[in-house]
């Protein structure tokens, strides 16, 4: 189900925990699976559960509890904008509105060409750099004024 490289990365995560505590690696394993597949279909969650020797339902509980797992397909680039209060005071909500207009979609929607999914995020712990956006859970973009957003979208096309 996953490439050899992903499995190796999961094995490295398992190595961080005591031998009888493989389940501790479930968050990392799900993240690695999502990174490879783009989202987390049930089969991937089940695969991870079996690989770690835990019940599939227990892995599903984890996948559905944490916000950054995508249990439905998302676009090639998932853009998460923080709109929480500190960001809002410095344009986080405006940045969200600007992106909605530019992409022609609402939060939790994907552009028809499958390129972008827009999400509203909660505090990313980077409020001093507001407005803040996260690309595909990995890359944090700071001080996203209109010009910077335009530049980012062009780069991601």
């Amino acid at each position: 189900m996953l490439t050899k490289e992903s499995i190796q990365r999961i094995d490295r995560e398992i190595g961080k925990y005591p031998q009888d505590r493989k389940q501790s690696a479930v968050m990392a394993a799900l993240a690695i699976a999502q990174e490879e597949l783009g989202w987390l279909p049930s089969e991937a969650i089940e695969f991870v559960a079996n690989y770690l020797g835990m019940e599939p339902i227990a892995a599903y509980e984890v996948a559905s509890f944490y916000n950054m797992y995508d249990l439905k397909p998302v676009g090639k680039h998932k853009l998460t904008v923080c709109t929480n209060l500190p960001c809002m005071l410095s344009g986080g909500v405006d940045a969200g509105e600007y992106l909605k207009k530019k992409l022609g979609i609402d939060f939790n929607e994907t552009t028809p060409d499958g390129r972008f999914t827009l999400k509203e995020g909660e505090c990313m712990g980077a409020c001093g750099d507001a407005p803040v956006m996260l690309v595909n859970n990995r890359r944090m973009c700071s001080c996203m004024q209109p010009e910077q957003i335009d530049k980012l979208l062009a780069e991601l096309e």
Binding site: S24, M27, L52, Y69
Partner: peptide
């Protein structure tokens, strides 16, 4: 250990459960 988006895991006992998978 890398979290994956849950404010509540800043609460120490929730954090411990989270490390336990």
């Amino acid at each position: 250990h890398h979290g994956y988006g849950a404010y509540i895991c800043g609460e120490e006992s929730a954090l411990l459960d989270s490390i336990e998978g």
